[in-house]
Design a protein around this nucleic acid. Sequence first.
DNA 1: AACTGCGCCAACCGCAGGGGA
DNA 2: ATCCCCTGCGGTTGGCGCAGT
Length: 253
Amino acid sequence: MVQQAFRKGPWTEQEDFKLVYYVGLFGDRKWDYIAKVSGLNRTGKSCRLRWVNYLHPGLKRGKMTPQEERLVLELHSKWGNRWSRIARKLPGRTDNEIKNFWRTHMRKMAQEKKKGPVPTPTSSSGCHSSISSNNHAVDSHASKKSGEESFYDTGGPPILKGSSSIEEFNIGEEDQEGFSMDDIWKDIDMSEDNIMEQPVVYDGNNFSCPPMPSPSWEYLEPLWVVDEESMLFPTSDPYFSYHKQGSSTILTG
DNA sequence: AACTGCGCCAACCGCAGGGGA
DNA sequence: ATCCCCTGCGGTTGGCGCAGT
């Protein structure tokens, strides 16, 4: 058999469109199949990763809130490097995101350690020596891309925009204040070793999103008018008009 | 203004587990 | 019962942009 040379590297706008379209058609499980029929010339793995880490409608972009940071630290002290597990407790955050955050955090801790003694990283009070400053200091994308509307500034991937039902997944930075950490802690205590997928719940203030790795397409369907014949994309969707305004075909990297 | 270092994110790789044939 | 394929997870790295010099 001749091994097919798959495309690698950053995803283009067109590839994203295709992927979203085919995930809409076939769901988010059969990645190899999607990769094949879509003609993306990517591996199923690559498609899945792109979806989970970037295109998934439940994603919450932007820097982690202090609450989230604290939660990550606590959960990490509990579970170690079980990123996906930790991610399930942070609605809208991916394991990759958390992993990256942790790396950055550890680096900072190491640097601070060089300078002088610091409280233990896993203590919720101690970690704030770096965390809180971090909160103000940097968000690479938010600050980097000032001047242009960034995915990372909007509280969610653009695909979400324009749909009122979906928009509700965008938990803005401010909304995080109302994000009940107590609920999360309770949840953690209750489900310690019995993590279940939970339905999306909106009580008027807070959201509980489905775990990232297994997103549901139910809430996306209205966005996608699937036309298999013509393969038309919903160009009227804000997501697409957004991208059409952009000059670059490369979305990331 | 140019250069360098750093921080951050996206994406790849390898491995393990689960499910179906 | 075994094998194979697919999916998911964790670790790692390359590239981009910003900040400091």
